[in-house]
């Protein structure tokens, strides 16, 4: 090792090994720091939430005087978040799926149009959700809508669209070209190939992509801040305002009453558990669904 790139002299073996162990310790230390930091977040949230984490939190709506520390729960926000996220994910999927099929089956891989579409998805990916929130609000006032489930759901769908599309696009790119060519050689059209072979082949990736987008949508507060409104009741129509978990946490945490703040911690624990469930489901589903994949 006398001629390293850049012409440095690495020095004696003992010195080199000292450098080695120094950096090894440094790396292990930073890994430990990261692990402790991250585990501490979870631990503190769960610890703080214990006093307020009762069954009534998840089966009751906020009662009168809930924000002064009296009885009630956040069923409205749990259900509301699920309504927003399921609606938004369906809407985003309804756009992303045909878009990605078109991108991969009807356009040549390096055509300028395909590049432009992928580039615009990259740009959309980078747009902060607060900007989507602002844009959603502008759309809302243009169409004389009030803050509602519909408006919130459309805004969250915009946040999820690039995540979902890129995830689908990446998994479809991994499908071996032989497989497509085989079906073409059997006389199948591109549409048949796309829907019956390629999409089936990428189904596990599709499921993880959908769950990833759902996770992001579930936790996004900035997108629903101006568009979804807030309510203490359960939302039954697309045009009513809807409560969401991140906003429930945010509002309760800003309360001067310690009981209400504790419920913010409990709500955060509930949201964390929902996210955990999604991430576990994504792991086990992708493992189970991949059994039928042709490799």
């Amino acid at each position: 090792m006398n001629n390293l790139p850049g012409g440095q002299n690495p020095g004696t073996l003992r010195k080199r090994l000292r450098v080695e162990s120094f950096f090894k310790v440094l790396m292990a230390a930073s890994a430990l720091l990261v692990l402790v930091g991250l585990v501490l977040i979870l631990a503190i949230i769960l610890w703080k939430s214990l006093p307020a984490l009762k069954l009534s939190m998840i089966i009751r709506n906020p009662g009168s005087g809930y924000y002064l520390g009296r009885e009630g729960g956040i069923l409205n926000a749990i259900l509301g978040s699920l309504q927003v996220v399921f609606g938004a994910t369906l809407l985003a999927l309804a756009i992303a799926l045909p878009a990605v099929v078109f991108l991969n089956s009807y356009l040549r891989r390096k055509s300028w149009l395909a590049e432009l579409i992928r580039f615009s998805l990259d740009v959309l990916w980078g747009i902060p959700s607060i900007v989507y929130g602002a844009f959603g609000f502008l759309v809302m006032i243009t169409f004389h809508l009030r803050a509602s489930l519909l408006a919130g759901l459309i805004t969250v769908a915009m946040v999820e669209l690039p995540i979902l599309s890129r995830a689908l696009d990446e998994t479809i790119k991994l499908v071996p070209p032989d497989l497509k060519e085989t079906t073409y050689s059997l006389g199948a059209s591109r549409w048949q190939t796309a829907t019956r072979v390629v999409l089936r082949q990428t189904f596990p990736g599709l499921v993880t992509g959908v769950l990833m987008a759902m996770g992001r949508g579930l936790g996004d507060a900035a997108a629903v801040l101006f568009t979804a409104g807030y309510t203490d009741k359960i939302t039954t129509s697309l045009l009513q305002p809807v409560a969401t978990l991140p906003l429930a946490i945010f509002f309760q945490l800003n309360s001067p009453f310690p009981e209400v703040q504790q419920r913010a911690f409990a709500s955060a624990a509930i949201l964390t558990i929902l996210i955990l469930l999604i991430s576990l489901a994504s792991r086990s589903l992708s493992r189970r669904l991949s059994r039928h994949k042709i490799r």
Binding site: I41, L42, I44, I45, L218, F250, A268, L271, S279
Partner: peptide, 13 residues
């Protein structure tokens, strides 16, 4: 899990 954890929870922490 933590890559997917909502930002409001980081803020709370």
């Amino acid at each position: 899990l933590l890559a997917g954890l909502p930002s409001v929870i980081y803020g709370m922490w």
